[in-house]
Amino acid sequence: MTQTNTPHRGLAFYLLAAFFGLFVVFLYGPMLMIFILSFQGPTGGLTFPMHGVSFHWFGDLWSSSRYGDLGGAFRRSLVLGGLSLVITAVVCLFAGLAFRHRFWGAGPIFYLAIVSLVVPGILLGLGISQLFQLLGIQLSWWLSGLGAHLSWTLPFGLLIMFAVLNRFDGSWEEAARDAGASAWQVLSYVTVPILFPGLIAVALFGFTLSYDEMPRSLLTVGGNNTLPIEISNMTTNVTTPALYAIGTVTSAVSFLVIAAAFVAIAIVQKRRARAQKG
């Protein structure tokens, strides 16, 4: 990318590299530590040293009733994540396509999306919950909760979609139309296949942002909590490595989803590369 003329790397490179390395350690080190500590022995505590290695605290999550409805919260979070994934990908795809044209109201809608990113989540949660109560609609994780999540995932998805569409040439669609394709054929044969890797990225945002969302959910999910709410309650109540165990579990889910998205993108790209080789 950047071609520095100096053939060998100077002192600046090593200092910066060391700084960057430290930052990565800072970023991942603490997480790594709780992953290790979640395998703490049954008699171990919240900090090192390890008193043996066991799955005790993972089992504890399942068996103990101290932690509330973790299973239900986990299930709800996965469902919400899945719904957000689909809705974010579809809504942002079409919204992104729309924003390529000039239309009345484009500015206000865009600014509303930006405002949604900027305002404190808890405040939006307050607004949504109060609005629902004023309208006499009962708060539920699958309606007001989902809405709160979408207020968070859609603006991000939209911004990613803009970036993706930046590299999308509108004349591909025109060429398809010129060949006689109907609006639906243009979408399914040309637009979606070309945008597919970008759509996976949007979907990834849709899932993970929803799956980990806490401040907006807090006031909007009604009686049934999502996993991040249960975990944040645990941070103040639970003083055993079970806290780390649930952290390891939920991070594992996140990493699995990220890995799945990356693999999916890689497969699409590879399929195209294979087509190239013939």
Binding site: D169, S171, W172, E174, A175, A176, D178, A179, G180, A181, S182, Q185, Y189, V190, P193, I194, R272, A275, G278
Partner: peptide, 25 residues
């Protein structure tokens, strides 16, 4: 039939599929 300035060839299709596109639709 319009030939576009930048050709607008479909990047996800091979040449056969590109050329056959209007037959496909």
């Amino acid at each position: 039939a319009l030939m576009f300035q930048n050709y607008a060839l479909f990047p996800h299709l091979n040449l056969t599929e590109n050329v056959a596109f209007s037959l496909k639709v």
